[in-house]
Every structure is written in C-alpha cells, then in structure tokens.
Design a protein around this nucleic acid. Structure first.
Lengths: 341, 341
DNA sequence: AAATACTATGCAAAGGTTTGCATAAAAATC
DNA sequence: GATTTTTATGCAAACCTTTGCATAGTATTT
C-alpha cells in the first residue's frame, strides 16, 4: 500500500496548530514564535517531512524543472552537452528532464506536448534530423515557455541559440588538406536537411572554391546516420571510385573511423594514400591507429552557456530582451591521420 | 508575461457548463450528451487545451514519472541502458527523469531527496562508486516508491535487481588468456568498493586459482575512474614491472585501450608480447588496432528488463511480491588483441 | 487608563483536476 | 397520470501548499 507522505497538516494536527503556522515556521517567516518554530522544526525532522513539490508547482506555476530534448545520448556529443547543462542548472535548483527524440520528428512533437502539460519552466533543444517545421517549438513559446536551441540550428525560428561554427570547422579542415598537398578531397556528409550537415558541406565547398578546386558530385556522399555502420558503405563507395580521393573529410569521428577502417582493409596507407579528418574530437579519437585528426568543439561549454541563457530568461522574468545568438569557434586538431603541411 | 494556460474552467465558462462536465466530456465518460461532448471537444481543440499534469498528480498521487539515477552518461554503458529503459517506459506513458550522481554519494542523496519531494512513481538506480550505505534508497522504499537496482549491486539492500554476471565475464576472459598460453596475467581493476569491481576481481583471482597460477600483489592495480586518462599511469606501472605481464585483463574497454596505447608506445607487440582483453564491448572497440578482445554485455537488455520490472511493480499495485534478481550472462568476444587459443 | 504598536496565529482562497453524490429533466413503464 | 428508470449535469470535496487579511493577545506609549 502506498503510504501517503507526511504533510503540513499532519504536523499541524500533531501540534494543535494550523498548517499556515507550520508552513511559516519552516520558512523562516519573521512573525513566528521561537518556541513554536523549534517544536515544528523538530517534529518535521522526526517525521521526515518532505514538501510536496507538485502542490507548490500548482500554486506558483513554477516547477523548477527544465526539459532537455536531444536526438540521442549514446554518442559523446550530447551526453557531454547534458553534463554541462546539468552543472549549471543543478546548483541553481533546477531539475532536468532529459528526453530523447530518437531523431524522430514525431517523437519530438510528442515530447513537447508532454512538456507543456507537465508545466515545465523552460526547454533546451537540439532538434531531430527529421524535424522540418518548428510549430511545436513555437507552441511552447506561445505558452510562455522560454526556449534555447543548441548545436543544431532551426533556421527561421526566433529563439535564443547556442551554436558551433560548423562552416568554419569544415573550412579549416578542408583548407588544411589542400595545404598539405591533397588534390582530390572527398566529403562524407551527414544526413540531409540538418543544419550542421549543410554548414559543414558548405564549408567544404567554399574551401575548395577558394583554392579553385573543382567540386565533383561523386566526391560527396551523404551518410544516413552517425554511427560506424552508417559510414562503412559510403566509405567503400568513395574509395572504390575510379578517381580515388586522396583525402576524406568526414561528418564526424565515427564516420571517419569507418573510413579509416575501410581504407586500411583495402591496403591503403593513411595518410600516405589517403588523409582523413573527422569532426567532434571524441575521447577515443586519439587512440586509433593512426591517431585521428579532427575538429574539436567546446561541447561542454555549449551545454553550460545554453543553460545559463535559459536560466537568465527564467530568472529575469518576462521582459523579453533581444534574442541571443552565440556561436563558438571550433579548432582543428592535427594528429597522424593527415599529412603534415 | 507568462500566459496562464487554458484550463477546464475556461472551457466550462465559455460554454456555460461546469468544469466537471468538461472533464467528463474529454474523458469519454458514458453519461454525457453527444452534443455537449462535441462542443467541448471542439472548443478544447480550438483553444489547445492541455490538461495540467501537476493538478492530476496532486490529486491521484501519481506522476507517471520514473526517476533514473546513474553515475554518468558520457560513456557507452549507461547511455545505452537508458535508451533501453526509455524504449520500455515511454510507450507505457511514463516520463523519465534522468539524474546524474557524478559518482558522488552526496549528490546521490540529494537526488533521492528531491525525487521524494517531486512525488516520483518509481526509481531505477545504479549507485555511485562512492556510495557506501543505502539509507537514502531505503527511505524511498519506505515512502512506497518501488526501486530497481541495475548493473551495480547494493549488497544487503532488499530491492529488485538486474545485474550482469561480472564474475563470470572476468573468469571467462582470464581463463581464455591462460588457455592461450599466457603465464603472467595482470588485472587493471576498477575503483574500490564497487560491486562490479569486486566481482570482476574475484573472477580474475578464481580463474588464476583454478589453474594453480600464483596471485601476485603487484599484478593488480586499481584505477581511480573509468576514462582513458585514468588508465594510462596504472598501465605504465604494470608494463614497467621487472617481471612484465604477458597479458592484461582490464576493467573496461577504455582502460584496455589505454593499456594498448602504453604498450605500443613501449614498442611491445600486441598480442605477441602482451595480450589485452577489455570489458563492455563499446562500439569503437573493434576499430582499434589491433581490434580489442572484450566481454560483451547485454546492455540494452539490462535497461529494458529493469524498466519492465519497475513497470510491473507500478501497475500490479501494492501486493509486494517476492523480489526479483535477474543476472545476465556476458560473452567473451575474441578479436586481435589476444592470442588465438 | 486609553490608545497604539507589535507579535503570533488562524482562516480562507487559490491553483486545476477528478469523482461520488445529489439533482433535475426527460423518457419509459405501469 | 403517477411512478420509476434513465440521462445529463452540477456541487463540493479532496490533493497540499502558500499568503493576504483578520484577529486575538501582549507590550509599549501617551
């Protein structure tokens, strides 16, 4: 049988006083007798009184809970962002409700609806790759729930945003490959319709363009997901081209690792025959053979800053200041999978 | 300004009926006029009525939220367990509140207290490595909150448990090393006081014992955490022993990778000079050079089963059936980092 | 002694929803 | 036409906490 918890009224009855007095005694209200206060505090401790946050939330229309919507958490990126979010929000007294959209637009909609019902205070979101419209986010905003978008942009949505300059990261990587003497640079690109995919692709294209390299259709392949398996076939396709690329810039480290794997199986030297650069700088990446060159992003900072911005919206209250758009710069980290320049 | 949401009463007023009628109309209550129902449903949709789950929770003492307490989520293990949990609980209509203890006993206590206050329905927990007593868990149970412990056992705590046979996994790994001809097998063990550490260590010891191998104090080193960095120094210490081990069984894959890294830097052949076996079978593990031999665990299943057990406690209600203790068997996966037998 | 200020407490409402009981109206039965 | 049944709706309580206002008693001032 579910034991009902100790309530204010229970304590009040036991001491023959009113619930209001008990509430005030526990809240350091000035107008309260020291004796009474002492008795209340003592009994509350004895009975292990725990205030019912539901009742409080109902009363104050504030739940001290922030929702975080991410596509997945099994990768390094989002789990680290979440850790950053937690490290800001938790000390501030906020709960975090982490929800996984599983890269599904439908699930994302279901999540936002549930969040509205649970009276969440604010939302941090990185949209699913299949998300096309932002009605569900706008609905949250209309409900007065502040929204911060991180990492994956929602073009056209008016919200605070914390992003990473994916374009710049890609540009750096490709330009480095060019400077190191690569002549035929391919790109394992991400799933279509995703802002980060597009920005990285554009960075790749523009770096080629800047150096007057021709862009070959066959040199760009979109992978369908972010895991190793998703990278194998596209990498094979690339490395079996008649005009085999001498460099691959991959969407992320997992895909880059797949490409390295395929290349090695084909007997190719890395970086002798083909240079490889990834994106994300996962913890494992420096331990591969050869150690993977990659683009580092301030992942933890993305989480912290997003949380801080949301927090300020929650606390400053309602004055609707101008929207913020923060863009972090990534850094190229050269290891052994790409030629020295 | 925080717009207050549409409530039952708002709809009631607009239609000149009572809130009870509106509630019933939206709930397919039998005794309700079709006309009325149609009107209510139509208006509710138009105004985008969202029931307030706080009020409901307060009334029914049920929040349809389950708390999940894990030490961290940046690794592969817990993030995958969580995905399994979600895939069971989400379709059943439950929310998941993921909380990170950060391997800290104190934070874990704070989390459980907060969970009691938020009237959570049930809890899934894998305790922090620094957790020594289980008072906080017992307090939850006393409050009538069902608790399921997964992966990391809490010896002496009466709760449902979903574990992996770490002892058996370790035993398999070490026995394999013995059978493959290794004579001097070391163990990079986990943080002290953690059930999985102890079980794996015992498996190591017993496998040696079974084959009449001497146990050398110097061959067992405890690492302080689960990341690559935590493994480097202990691995160096091990491989610089006068009597250098010809095999290392590591606490997990990250540590094993560190050991491989150190060994390679020292110019040792793997597995020629030293065999290495890890634990966890992370997605990356087969992509290292050489591909890492390891122990696979049914991580996703651990999550799913834990969630299913909790779910049955939540639904069956209160009859307190006997506690379940499910133990999954891990599997040895031999790749290239250990000699063939 | 009367008026004022202060201290300590209680009452009641509010927050949104559900539900048992009561009630009213309509329909069905005799 | 009177009684019973059915159908549709409303009232009010309950869930727990906070807080403005009122009140009663005590202490201070004039």
């Amino acid at each position: 049988m579910k034991k009902s918890r100790v309530t204010l009224t229970d304590i009040a009855k036991a001491l023959n006083i009113s619930a209001s007095t008990v509430s005030r005694a526990l809240k350091d209200h000035p107008a309260i007798n020291k004796e009474t206060k002492r008795a209340v505090v003592k009994l509350a401790k004895k009975l292990k009184y725990q205030p019912n946050l539901l009742a409080l939330g109902l009363l104050q229309k504030k739940t001290y809970t922030v929702g975080v919507i991410v596509p997945e958490i099994t990768g390094h990126f989002f789990s680290t962002v979440i850790t950053g979010i937690r490290d800001v929000l938790s000390p501030a007294g906020y709960n975090i409700a982490i929800c996984l959209s599983n890269e599904s637009f439908q699930e994302e909609i279901a999540i936002t609806e549930k969040m509205a019902k649970t009276q969440i205070d604010g939302v941090l979101v990185s949209p699913a790759s299949s998300t096309k419209t932002y009605k569900h986010f706008k609905a949250l905003q209309k409900n007065g729930i502040p929204l911060v978008v991180f990492d994956r942009d929602c073009p056209g949505l008016d919200a605070d945003k914390v992003l990473v300059d994916d374009y710049d990261g890609a540009f750096q990587a490709v330009e480095y490959l060019i400077n190191s003497g690569c002549k035929n640079i391919a790109h394992l690109s991400g799933p279509m319709n995703l802002s980060i995919t597009e920005h990285r692709l554009q960075g790749y294209l523009d770096a080629l363009g800047k150096h007057k390299f021709p862009v070959k259709q066959e040199n760009v392949i979109h992978v369908s997901g972010f895991t190793h398996e998703d990278g194998i076939k596209p990498a094979q396709k690339l490395l079996k081209l008649k005009n085999r690329p001498d460099a691959i810039f991959a969407m992320n480290d997992c895909i880059a690792i797949s490409a390295m794997h395929v290349a090695k199986k084909m007997g190719l030297q890395i970086p002798g025959d083909v240079s490889i650069i990834g994106f994300d700088d996962e913890p494992h990446s420096s331990y591969f053979t050869p150690a993977l060159s990659t683009i580092w992003q301030p992942v933890y900072s993305v989480g912290m800053l997003s949380a801080r911005i949301l927090l300020s919206k929650l606390q400053e209250g309602e004055e609707e200041p101008e929207l913020r758009r923060e863009v972090f710069k990534p850094e190229l980290i050269i290891r052994a999978s790409s030629k020295a320049v």
